[in-house]
Structures are given as structure tokens and as C-alpha cells.
């Protein structure tokens, strides 16, 4: 059981949670994730750790209500308990210190940039966070990220805030501008299509890039192999070998196809959960 001590609705479907989890907060590093379960009979789902406070013993997660389980998580309020929170799972992001690190966040993936930017800025790296969203209402955590990085770049598809265009277009400009704007390494966290586009943007100019893969998982401890991702032609388990991999080696075609394996079941689960909730309220 882990108590929720703060919640904030970031967008209509995205919610911020600060959770009491002292052991996880003490050992978490950027790039790792937790496995959550919200009810008996519920699924185990992986959620990236957005941030942690070792002193307060809390971790922060940001959840987007897309499936039956994430909808259930997002229905939880301050003071509620999350049935199971296990972690930190996976390896953390390792980048040689002293360079310019650019974190690219798309959608609710931007949340994971919080601890990444904070830790790398603190050790003396130059840090740039590029946040992308369709419009300014869907933009999340910009104010929280601003003090944590050297430069904050905001991109919206419609130009309602910051740069008008995709994160990849802004990233390409920074790379083209050369040092000091050109990053030495890029970490992209967000939807698969966006991470793939970032990989293609940095491949030509040869900027070292990591992507945080988010495949389907069951246990998160290396036991099922359901999360296997093809990296440099070899099967890797995202839960123990990842979740961050060299973007230029990841086979995104396979990864995107595998993530669609349970689309029908997920749709049915959403309908069923809505049905059950109606019964419970009635």
C-alpha cells in the first residue's frame, strides 16, 4: 500500500500524483519505473518515475487515463492508497557528465524529464528540455521544469505557446546551430511515434540518443519476456535490460506492432470498467 499525498489534474486526462514510497524514493534514479496495481484482480502496469524526493520519502508519477487501469488510477484522490507499488524497476539513464544533455518530452512523457533535468543540472551539465504538445492547454509541467534546466524550449503544433511545430523541428534547429546549442546527447520520452521521429532527427548528425521504451509488461522483473524489444537485431527485455535503449538501434516497427497486440482487449476492458463503475455508483 502506498498513500497518495498530493494530486493535481494537469490536463483533462493527465493527472499528477505524489506518493509516499520511502524505499523507492531512496533508491530511484532517472529513467526507472514502478509497477502499479490498483485493485485485487487488477493489472500490473509500468509507470515511469517522474521525480522523487529522498528526504520526504515520496515519488512523483504522472498518469494518462487511456486504458481501464490508468482510468482507475486517475480516479484516485489525495489520501487514497494505491494497492501495490513496486520499484524502482529497470536500469537508470547513464550519460557521461560534463556535456550538454537535451531531454525531449512528448505528451505526459514530459513528466519524466523532472528528475532527469534536476540531476544532470545539479552535477554541472548544460541541460535543455524540449516540451511538446498539440496546443498550450495540453502542455504540462513547464513551470516545474523551468528552474530545473539551463534552457527550456516549448513547442506546440498550433503555435499557441512557444515554437510553432514539432519537437523534432526545434531539436533539428538546435543541432544545426552547433555548440553551445547543439546537445551532446538526447533523451526522448513520450509516444512511440515521437521517439521514433527523434531517433530519425539525430541519426544523420550522429547525436547519441536514448529512448525510453514503453512496451507491454506483466511482471516488470524479467520473468515473462513480454516486454522484449529488438535492439541491434537482438531481443532485449525492457524491464531489466532497459527501459532506455540506443534510439538508433531500436526496431520501432516491431515495437509499435507489439504494443498493439491487445488493442481489442483493452477496448473491451475500458467498456467493462465503465459498466462496473456505473453498477457501483448505482
Amino acid at each position: 500500500m502506498a498513500k497518495i499525498i498530493e494530486t493535481r489534474q494537469l490536463t483533462a486526462v493527465t493527472k499528477y500524483f505524489r506518493i509516499e514510497a520511502p524505499l523507492i524514493a531512496a533508491s530511484a534514479r532517472p529513467g526507472q519505473f514502478v509497477m502499479l496495481r490498483v485493485r485485487e484482480g487488477g493489472e500490473r502496469i509500468p509507470i515511469t518515475i517522474a521525480d522523487y524526493d529522498r528526504e520526504l520519502g515520496t515519488i512523483t508519477i504522472v498518469v494518462q487515463a487511456v486504458g481501464a487501469t490508468t482510468q482507475r488510477v486517475c480516479a484516485l484522490k489525495t489520501g487514497d492508497d494505491i494497492l501495490d507499488v513496486a520499484g524502482p524497476m529497470g536500469g537508470h539513464i547513464e550519460i557521461a557528465p560534463g556535456g550538454h544533455v537535451c531531454g525531449v518530452g512528448g505528451g505526459f512523457g514530459s513528466a519524466a524529464l523532472l528528475c532527469l533535468m534536476r540531476e544532470f543540472t545539479a552535477r554541472g551539465d548544460t541541460t535543455t528540455a524540449i516540451l511538446g504538445a498539440r496546443n498550450k492547454d495540453l502542455l504540462i509541467l513547464a513551470d516545474e521544469l523551468r528552474p530545473l534546466c539551463t534552457h527550456l524550449e516549448i513547442c506546440t503544433d498550433d503555435g499557441s505557446a512557444g515554437f510553432k511545430g514539432f519537437v523534432t523541428q526545434r531539436l533539428a534547429q538546435l543541432i544545426e546551430a552547433g555548440p553551445p546549442k547543439r546537445p551532446d546527447s538526447v533523451v526522448a520520452i513520450g509516444p512511440m511515434a515521437m521517439m521514433r521521429a527523434v531517433a530519425e532527427t539525430t541519426r544523420g548528425p550522429k547525436v547519441k540518443t536514448l529512448v525510453s521504451m514503453d512496451p507491454l509488461m506483466v511482471d516488470g522483473t524479467g520473468m515473462c519476456g513480454g516486454c522484449r524489444v529488438t535492439v541491434a537485431g537482438k531481443a532485449q527485455f525492457a524491464c531489466v535490460d532497459g527501459p532506455c535503449f540506443d534510439a538508433h538501434e531500436v526496431d520501432f516497427d516491431v515495437a509499435m506492432r507489439r504494443n498493439k497486440a491487445y488493442v481489442q482487449e483493452e477496448k473491451r476492458a475500458v467498456d467493462r470498467a465503465a459498466c462496473m463503475d456505473r453498477r457501483e455508483t448505482a
Binding site: 506483466v218 522483473t221 524479467g222 520473468m223 515473462c224 519476456g225 513480454g226 522484449r228 529488438t230 531481443a235 516491431v254 506492432r257 507489439r258 498493439k260 497486440a261
Partner: peptide, 22 residues
């Protein structure tokens, strides 16, 4: 000993293929 082994044959990452553990 919970880490499942795979054969390494072509097609192992197709949808519908999984370890017995999964």
C-alpha cells in the same frame, strides 16, 4: 530461475508468440 529463454529463431517477436512464463 525465472528468466525465460527464447530459441532465437526467426519470427519469435511476432504477436501471439510468448514465453510459457508470460
Amino acid at each position: 530461475a525465472g528468466l525465460p529463454q527464447f530459441l532465437g529463431i526467426p519470427g519469435e517477436n511476432l504477436n501471439g508468440v510468448m514465453s510459457a512464463n508470460e
